[in-house]
């Protein structure tokens, strides 16, 4: 289990997490289910409640704005995959444990399954799909290819995004930095050896 995982959205101060949302929604369950928003009192404070039906949500994905109608309970991951057909981020654990759905929010790595789509409004999201420049792979992607850092490839997009975010922050990582910084992603085929080599290669290049 990753210690001090930098990708847990609570650390980012990103507003309402999925778990907190569930608490709020259980408070509002007695409220009349109408479209859009309304306000209920929870713990003595007025809380704006969305849904439970579909509400308008505007997402900024890879620099493009998308207007969607989503239930507030829809995660960013499901919005990307099932509503926008942006399927690079994978659904594996669906509860913030494995990293296969890693995307960048405000330039920082987050688990897209642990963030509600509605909470990412106004915050730019970058997915693995946008890393290529035309037909040219991003240097991190090329390093993954060169070092055979994928097998079945299902964890790979999450790892690539996590690796990019990590290298942006630690351009000259030590081996120990790599082990710590990428411990929030799991692979079942066992491609960690190639991933270590790929990131070490990037570090040597000073990217």
């Amino acid at each position: 289990m990753p210690e001090n995982d930098p990708k847990q959205p609570h650390d980012e101060g990103s507003g309402v997490s999925r778990r907190e949302f569930l608490k709020i929604s259980s408070i509002s369950v007695a409220a009349v289910p109408i479209m859009g928003t309304h306000v209920v009192e929870a713990a003595g404070e007025p809380v704006k409640v969305y849904g439970p039906g579909k509400v308008p949500v505007e997402l900024t994905i890879n620099g493009k704005k998308h207007a969607l109608q989503l239930e507030p309970r829809v995660t960013l991951l499901d919005a990307l995959r099932d509503h926008l057909e942006i399927t690079g981020a994978k659904r594996v654990c669906d509860r913030g444990e494995c990293g296969a759905c890693t995307v960048l929010m405000d330039g920082k790595a987050v688990y897209a399954c642990a963030v509600l789509a509605i909470e990412t409004q106004g915050r730019p999201i970058t997915t693995v799909e946008s890393l290529m420049q035309g037909e040219l792979l991003h240097p991190v992607q090329q390093a993954f290819v060169d070092n055979d850092a994928s097998q079945c490839g299902f964890c790979t997009p999450g790892f690539v995004v996590a690796a990019k975010a990590f290298l942006d922050k630690h351009p000259q990582p030590t081996a120990e930095d790599i082990r710590r910084g990428l411990s929030g992603n799991f692979c079942r085929c066992g491609t960690y050896h190639g991933i270590q080599q790929a990131i070490a290669q990037m570090a040597q290049k000073g990217v």
């Binding site: 693995v128 799909e129 290819v145 850092a149």
Partner: peptide
């Protein structure tokens, strides 16, 4: 290098 690696690393 595996031929489908570019597809896999780019999503």
């Amino acid at each position: 290098s595996r031929v489908d690696a570019p597809l896999k690393v780019s999503g």
